[in-house]
Design a protein around this nucleic acid. Structure first.
Ligand code: DCP
Ligand code: MG
Ligand code: MG
Length: 1052
DNA sequence: ATCCTCCCCTAC
DNA sequence: TAAGGTAGGGGAGGAT
């Protein structure tokens, strides 16, 4: 609820809500909050809450008055909210109360309002992605000479579009003759990463502004950050435009622009008295790619409001250009800036090297970099020393600078301080993200009125395959470019430049040459010469990665801080996943930690300073989008990494290996366009023959789902590559559809949320076609599908579990039949997983000998998962008694089931990973090293912090199975009836083991318990045991999608 | 040979 | 103050 909610006071509303089954969250939490109640919201909030239902308070009061839950629709704050938000069936769901994930799914139907800030509804784009064009084109410089010439890079592959006219969004008509560039790649990794940087507490000084919104702890931090982040906007827009273009392509359309172009050409021809050439030109097989890019985009949009600044050196930046950045005590601006420059800006200085000489000079690249760095430092030094003390060095980055500013050497991405240095007259103007988006929209729509063979590159930039366009209109590239640029200018008031060539790379280079408000057509004949003259800097290099974001503030030197932040990030990730109906199996945590030679304080406010990066990933047995699971995994990793809290500068979470979340999924995914070689990786384990139907159907039918949400077509990315047969055509969509099976429907329509997890998911995919031979006897750990017998939706399997247990042949029979219900290949997977599991077990024992030492925690530790704390104190532990951990470290094996082909299909991964702690953060060895900055990356001494091991999951201090057994034995002997407390401790212990992926130990412990209860005839303990088992199964279920299989005689 | 993970890189 | 995000190619090195 927004604090602005006056009307009824927020307290009153809160009371009403509580009274009627809702709940009230004081702070925004995307997972808990279902409706935002407010009378008005700042636009930044609107943006922030755009996925939410924003509703006026009268909704609540009126509902209460009328005694039932009224539709919130008439009460929406902004009708611009796209999508169909379905009403809630009960007031109770007003707010999701933090229960288990499973419950969450039920609500949150919030539509996928993608971008569109204030009411820009058309931006609702579908999810399909176009791939990056640059794929291979970015051939390293050496090959450039050769490769450039052919149009290797740019095969705007196309396939005939089957017109799916149904998604009519615009008034355009279908033109089935158009093509859709598509990508053969299956990679669809939605990733999310955010970093965090902090400054030390010592610098409490720097943060007296306690009201500063920039705190990691602040619930608004993330959204606040994003809404001001130009790079975030750029990224977001890019993917939106890709999706938009993709949608256009699927839609088909008419191209009003072509007529104009055609007319102009006609006219021209008349004048020139019919050159017979143009008809002939049509024969040219030559592909023509045009690259269009707005000139100093942010600036020129900004100047529309400040026309008087035209002609002046203008920059867009957050910095207001006055005042001085505070010189943070512990920081080393010079040092950091130098590092920054080394990293980012290697532009400009390496000057004149020509392509032609590149091949032999290639290796000197590094040196060059360093040289340029030195120059940078030099400047900095001067600046530092500059007399008069008027050193303005803001570290705000310049997003875009006008060409006047460029004359002084100012560049995009440069720090404001340095730019000011280079050009004292610099004028700054603020960001106007909405303005950029508006212009961007016009740009795209303008081009789209000519063709849909577009590849979005950025919000101010795109690639256009003009081949078809030019052919059909009989025009030449120059004519088209002129017309297009004129039109863009007329409509937006901003200028664009265009470059054309036979491939993407050439087109881009041509643009660069054309740049300030010009165009350049690079004909085939000039290519060699052109290239020869190009400075190497003008060649777009290989690609990219990224960096980060951050937050500063002394807030947490304590680990809780970071973990809390992680939780928030997890929610962010969850939302992103949720919005695209995907779940992922792989979670990666990326950590940036202060490099040992870096100062304690970051030079740049909210910067991350100079860091070491570490990343670690875990594979989940089943895909998830649950923020709690994500955060739990991340926290575990973080703890294991043992980064000093004060050195933690950035945190990023990525979720990969996405697959459609089966429940309601009508989205189309993937579909990246490929404008270049679709190099088939051949290889191929033909998709298991049984399910060939996949292979063959590159159908588009799923689109139907756009209108019939009930269906559950599951999009599956096709991993294998295009048969290379026809290089000009990408053979498919790379998105495939598996027919939903009957049970599908019932599951979806009915009690879907009940069936969760691997088996359930699998079953949903396909019906079994074959029955497999019985499983090997698994008296040990085994996983049992829990599909058939329903659970209560609360997820409590209690009842059912008993059934399972009771059935004599529990394992052979029921589970077998469940298994049998699965597709053959999946059965196999399960089997394999099982096999590996046991093998792993073997390994484990083996590695046991390798002796992994862990500290014994002597404290009874209620919470085995201790905050990694223990920093220095932990060190002493080193001397404390240690236990050998039976399940030794190295094991932590992971099963990989059939690799590629199934990649995006449901894949049971029963990964019993042994508690994998260990792992040390590579740290730069600071020890008495005044270590100059010299460090060559590879050289830096990494000291592994092998010491101060992590407190491991333990039962009252017992870690090893032997100790636990001893403890349990004592426990059993101590009395005939268990204490409630004991029960809870056991549950906690076992649960933590599960979280730790140490199912093996869980199994051992349970069996041990069972055995001894029987042996000692402790009848009274049985209910406790059941209870414990139930509790554990719930957790296992939620994490693995199935339950532990336990011997049939359990508990008897 | 082929994967996967962890990294780096760079265009916007 | 500043808002250093992000997709995706590619390489090294380990596991299989
Ligand atoms: N380091 C960078 C580079 C770019 N941008 C933003 C601002 C730019 O206006 C926009 C487009 O980037 P371009 O590379 O196209 O640069 P400009 O459009 O500003 O200038 P040019 O005329 O060279 O295209 O992206 C940014 O925020 N930070
Ligand atoms: Mg531009
Ligand atoms: Mg651009």
């Amino acid at each position: 609820m927004s604090s602005n909610s006056r009307e009824p006071s927020s307290d009153e509303l809160k009371r009403l809500m509580m009274l009627h089954g809702g709940s009230y969250e004081h702070y925004m939490s995307k997972t808990r909050v279902t409706h935002v109640i407010a009378t008005s919201l700042a636009s930044s909030k609107v943006n922030e809450f755009k996925h939410m239902k924003m509703i006026r308070p009268e909704w609540i009061t009126d509902s209460v008055k009328s005694g039932r839950l009224l539709s919130y629709v008439p009460y929406q704050l902004y009708t611009a909210q796209t999508g169909i938000q379905q009403g809630l069936s009960s007031f109770t769901s007003l707010t999701v109360t933090q229960r288990s994930t499973i419950t969450n799914n039920t609500q949150q139907q919030s539509s996928n309002t993608t971008a569109s800030f204030n009411g820009r509804t058309e931006n609702q784009m579908d999810r399909s992605y176009c791939g990056s064009i640059k794929g291979n084109l970015a051939a390293k410089s050496q090959e450039l000479g050769e490769n450039l010439i052919e149009n290797t890079a740019s095969k705007v592959t196309q396939i005939d579009k089957r017109n799916n006219s149904h998604i009519t969004v615009n008034d355009k008509t279908v033109d089935s003759s158009f093509k859709v560039p598509n990508d053969g790649e299956y990679t669809l990794q939605e990733t999310e990463k955010v970093k965090l940087a902090k400054t030390t507490a010592t610098a409490a000084t720097s943060c007296q502004s306690s009201h500063s919104p920039a705190k990691a702890g602040d619930p608004d931090f993330l959204s606040e950050f994003y809404s001001n982040s130009r790079l975030h906007h750029l990224s977001t827009w890019k993917s939106e435009w890709r999706a938009y273009v993709n949608k256009l392509q699927k839609q088909g359309s008419s191209f009003p622009g072509r007529q104009k172009l055609y007319d102009v050409v006609k006219e021209k021809e008349m004048e020139v008295c019919q050159r017979v050439i143009s008809p002939l030109q049509k024969a040219k097989p030559q592909r023509i790619i045009m690259h269009i890019d707005m000139d100093c985009f942010f600036v020129s949009v900004g100047l529309k409001r400040r026309p008087e600044l035209k002609g002046k050196p203008v920059v867009v930046t957050h910095s207001r250009g006055k005042g001085m950045a505070k010189d943070t005590p512990g920081s080393d601006v010079q040092f950091e800036r130098r590092q920054w420059e080394l990293r980012r800006q290697q532009g400009g200085k390496k000057g004149k090297r020509k392509l032609s000489s590149v091949s032999d000079q290639q290796p000197s690249e590094d040196i060059d970099d360093r040289e340029s760095d030195d120059i940078g430092v030099d400047i900095v030094a001067r600046q530092q020393t500059s007399p008069g003390g008027s050193t303005f060095h803001s570290m705000a980055e310049i997003a875009s600078c006008s060409y006047e500013a460029r004359k002084c050497g100012v560049r995009n991405g440069m720090f404001m301080g340095k730019a000011k240095q280079l050009c004292p007259d610099l004028v700054t103007i603020p960001y106007d993200f909405e303005g950029y988006q508006d212009v961007s929209k016009i740009l795209y729509d303008t081009v789209a009125s000519y063709t849909h063979d577009i590849e979005a590159v950025s919000c101010d930039e795109m690639l256009v395959d003009c081949t078809d366009l030019l052919t059909t209109t009989g025009s030449n590239p120059v004519q088209f470019a002129s017309m297009l640029r004129d039109e863009i200018y007329n409509k937006t008031g901003c200028t664009a430049s265009a470059g054309m060539g036979s491939n993407i790379l050439l087109a881009k280079m041509a643009t660069k040459k054309a740049k300030p408000n010009g165009q350049y057509y690079l004909g085939a004949d000039e290519v060699l010469e052109f290239i020869h003259d190009q400075s190497i800097d003008n060649i777009p290099g290989k690609n990219y990665t990224v960096y980060n974001l951050c937050l500063a503030q002394p807030l947490g030197q304590d680990d809780m801080e970071a973990e809390h932040f992680l939780t928030e990030l997890s929610e962010e990730v969850h939302n992103r996943l949720f919005n695209i109906d995907m779940k992922g199996k792989s979670i990666t945590l990326k950590i940036m930690s202060r490099r040992a030679d870096a100062p304690q304080e970051t030079a740049k406010f909210m910067g991350h300073g100079i860091c070491n990066n570490t990343s670690k990933s875990v594979m989940l047995p089943i895909a998830t989008d649950d923020s709690k699971i994500i955060s739990r995994e991340c926290i575990t990793i973080l703890r294991n990494l043992k980064v000093k809290a004060t050195d933690l500068r950035g945190i990023g979470i990525q979720v990969q290996k996405l697959e459609p979340s089966t429940v309601k999924n009508n989205n189309v995914k993937g579909a990246q366009s490929i404008l270049n070689f679709a190099v088939p990786k051949s290889k191929e384990k033909v998709v298991s023959p049984q399910e060939n139907n996949n292979t063959s159907s590159y159908s588009d039918k799923r689109i139907i789902n756009g209108t019939s949400p009930v269906h559950d077509y599951t999009a599956v990315l096709q991993p294998y590559d295009t048969p290379q047969s026809d290089e000009n055509y990408i053979s498919h969509d790379n998105v495939d559809v598996i027919e939903s099976s009957q049970d599908d429907h019932q599951e979806i329509n009915g009690n879907s949320e009940v069936f969760h997890g691997i088996v359930g998911e699998l079953a949903r995919r396909k019906t079994a076609k074959k029955i497999l031979p019985p499983l090997p006897s698994m008296d040990d750990l085994s996983l049992t599908p829990e599909g058939a017998d329903t659970l209560t939706s609360s997820g409590r399997p209690r009842r059912k579990r008993h059934q399972v247990i009771e059935s004599e042949d529990y394992f052979p029979s029921p589970s077998q039949s469940c298994l049998n219900a699965l597709p053959v290949d999946l059965q196999k997977e399960l089997r394999e997983a099982y096999a590996q599991q046991t093998e792993q077990e073997r390994n484990k024992t083996a590695s046991n000998a390798a002796s992994m030492w862990l500290p014994q925690s002597n404290s009874p530790s209620k919470k085995p998962s201790s905050p990694l704390k223990a920093k220095s104190p932990g060190k002493t532990k080193k001397n404390s008694p240690v236990f050998k951990v039976p399940q030794g470290r190295p094991v932590r094996g992971r099963k990989k089931l059939s690799p590629k082909k199934l990649k995006f299909q449901k894949q049971p991964k029963i990964d019993i990973t042994v508690s994998g702690r260990k792992e040390s953060v590579p740290m730069f060895d600071n020890k008495e090293t005044t270590l100059t900055i010299k460090e060559i990356p590879g050289t830096s001494v990494m000291t592994s912090h092998v010491d101060q091991p992590q407190k491991s999951v333990n039962l009252c201090g017992a870690v090893s199975i032997a100790d636990v057994k001893t403890l349990l034995r004592e426990w059993l002997q101590s009395s005939t009836t268990p204490e409630k407390d004991d029960e809870e401790i056991m549950i906690e212990y076992l649960t933590d083991l599960v979280f730790d992926h140490n199912l093996e130990q869980v199994d051992l412990v349970l069996k041990f318990l069972n055995r001894n209860i029987c042996k000692m005839n402790r009848v009274n303990w049985r209910p406790s045991l059941w209870k414990i088992i139930d509790a554990v199964q719930v957790v296992v279920q939620s994490m693995y999608g199935c339950q532990l299989g336990l011997p049939t005689d359990f508990g008897f």
